Computed example of a mutant assay.
Amino acid sequence: MTVRDIRIVGDPVLRTPCEEIATIDDRVRALVADLLETVDADGRAGLAANQIGVSLRAFSWNIDGELGYVLNPRLVEVSEQEQHGDEGCLSVPGLWYPTTRGAYARVTGMDVDGNAVDVAGEGLMARCLQHEYDHLDGKLYLSRLTGPVRKDALRTVREKF
Rank of each mutant, 00 (worst) to 15 (best):
P12D: 02
V54M: 04
W61M: 12
F161V: 15
Q83E: 06
R127Q: 09
R158T: 12
C18V: 08
H84G: 11
L140R: 08
K139D: 12
A103H: 00
T156D: 09
E87A: 07
I52D: 05
H84F: 15
H84K: 15
R144A: 12
V32T: 04
W96H: 14
M110F: 12
P12R: 07
E82H: 11
L14E: 00
E82F: 08
G85V: 09
V39E: 05
Q81T: 15
G102Q: 05
V92T: 07
C18G: 03
V76L: 03
G10L: 02
S55T: 10
M110H: 14
T108L: 02
L35P: 06
Y133Q: 02
L56Y: 08
E20F: 14
T156H: 06
G68Y: 02
R7N: 15
R158H: 14
G109R: 02
R7T: 11
S143K: 06
R29N: 15
A58I: 00
G53I: 00
L136Q: 07
R101N: 04
G102I: 00
E20I: 07
V32D: 09
S60P: 01
R150H: 10
G121V: 04
A22D: 15
T38I: 04
R57K: 15
L90A: 10
D40S: 06
V32I: 08
S79W: 00
N72S: 08
V9Y: 15
L142T: 14
G65Y: 01
H131T: 13
R29C: 15
Q83D: 09
L47T: 02
V70A: 11
K139H: 13
N62S: 09
Y141I: 03
I6K: 07
V76M: 05
G53K: 13
G109D: 01
G147I: 09
E122T: 11
R57A: 07
D113K: 12
D5G: 06
F59K: 00
T108E: 11
F161L: 13
A45D: 11
V117T: 07
D137L: 12
Y141D: 01
A116G: 14
V3R: 15
C18K: 04
I52Y: 03
V13I: 14
R4C: 09
Q81Y: 12
G68D: 02
T100G: 11
Q130A: 06
H131L: 10
V119G: 07
I21S: 06
R44A: 13
E82D: 10
V157M: 13
R27A: 15
S55V: 07
F161E: 06
P98L: 11
L142P: 02
V13W: 06
V92P: 08
G121D: 03
V32C: 06
R74H: 13
G88A: 12
S143D: 11
L124K: 07
R15C: 04
A103Q: 04
